[in-house]
Design a protein around this nucleic acid. Structure first.
Length: 286
DNA sequence: AGATCGCCCTGCTTGC
DNA sequence: TGCAAGCAGGGCGATC
């Protein structure tokens, strides 16, 4: 599942292989892949053709390709299973190929959006004064953004009447954190996912944020080394970091800190993995 | 009006 | 064996 580190790896790959190239023709092979583009696939293709791509940007799990003139951007979200691949033009189509961008140069490669489950997609949006596509103005800065406002984040946590994992996944508070890195950061912080944010002391929430950054940087250090090939890949190559996970996906395996068996609990239509000894639940269940 | 919940989608795994 | 249910889950819109 692509979260911030995986999306950043894709962004770097796009910067290496796609920035500066001019779009020739665009093929939309599945309407759902452009469902966030209200005018539809034909409009998407027509407006993108002939435009030159600038330096790819990212905020949280969103990435976008600014187009020359800075007025318009191709916004992308990988969803659960999305991939952006730079492929030789003569490579056979992937089974779940949704969108193809051909370029005017003679590099011999094209950009493909491949997505089995179609939770992700591409769309065109006006770029606001701060360089952000207008439709993601509500997405908070992410923890690796130098301009992330740490004081404001801590204040927001204290003010909210919610629990800590919900707050981690709330993209309007902090972006880029998904279920995997939330569970990992909570495990590192010895915090149970149902703990109330209002009860977090400043040192505790500072520690939590530090662990969020640490686990993301660790994933980036592993995944970030593989983009220097032709393939701009996403979760397919993140198996390296899977071995480094301490909580997520480790149900019935021993906690690497204390040996207690890691548990999985249904949570918000997904799962939470935690060590019942290191991460004690709050006394009053919420 | 902020918090919560259901739905979207497909392929692999699990269980009867 | 074969089929169905479960599971993966981010984001958004409907609802309370």
């Amino acid at each position: 599942m692509p979260e911030l580190p995986e999306v950043e790896v894709v962004r770097r790959g796009l910067e290496r292989w796609v920035a500066g190239r001019t779009v020739d023709a665009v093929e939309v092979l599945h309407p759902r892949a452009v469902r966030r583009h209200p005018a539809g696939g034909a409009d998407f293709a027509a407006r993108l053709a002939g435009r030159t791509i600038g330096v790819p940007q990212r905020r949280g799990k969103y990435l976008w390709l600014p187009l020359e003139g800075r007025d318009l951007s191709v916004l992308g979200h990988l969803g659960m299973s999305g991939q952006l691949l730079v492929q030789p033009e003569d490579a056979p189509d992937e089974k779940h190929l949704r969108i193809r961008l051909r370029f005017k140069d003679d590099a011999g490669t094209e950009l493909r959006f491949v997505d089995q489950r179609t939770f992700g997609g591409l769309s065109l949006h006006d770029t606001t004064a701060d360089g952000l596509p207008d439709v993601i103005a509500h997405i908070a800065r992410d923890p690796l953004d130098p301009l992330f406002d740490e004081d404001a984040y801590h204040r927001a946590l204290r003010a909210k009447r919610t629990t800590v994992k919900r707050a981690l996944l709330d993209q309007s508070l902090i972006s880029g954190v998904g279920n995997i890195y939330a569970d990992e950061a909570l495990w590192r912080s010895r915090l149970h996912y149902e703990r109330a944010t209002a009860a977090l002391t400043r040192p505790r929430s500072t520690e939590l944020l530090g662990h969020v950054r640490d686990v993301m940087n660790a994933a980036l250090a592993v995944g970030g080394t593989s983009f220097d090939s032709l393939y701009v890949n996403v979760n397919g190559e993140s198996g390296y970091f899977d071995r480094s996970l301490d909580a997520y996906g480790r149900e019935d395996e021993p906690c690497r800190r204390c040996g207690t068996v890691i548990r999985r609990r249904p949570w918000m239509n997904r799962s939470s993995y935690f060590c019942p000894r290191c991460q004690r639940p709050p006394r009053v269940a919420s």
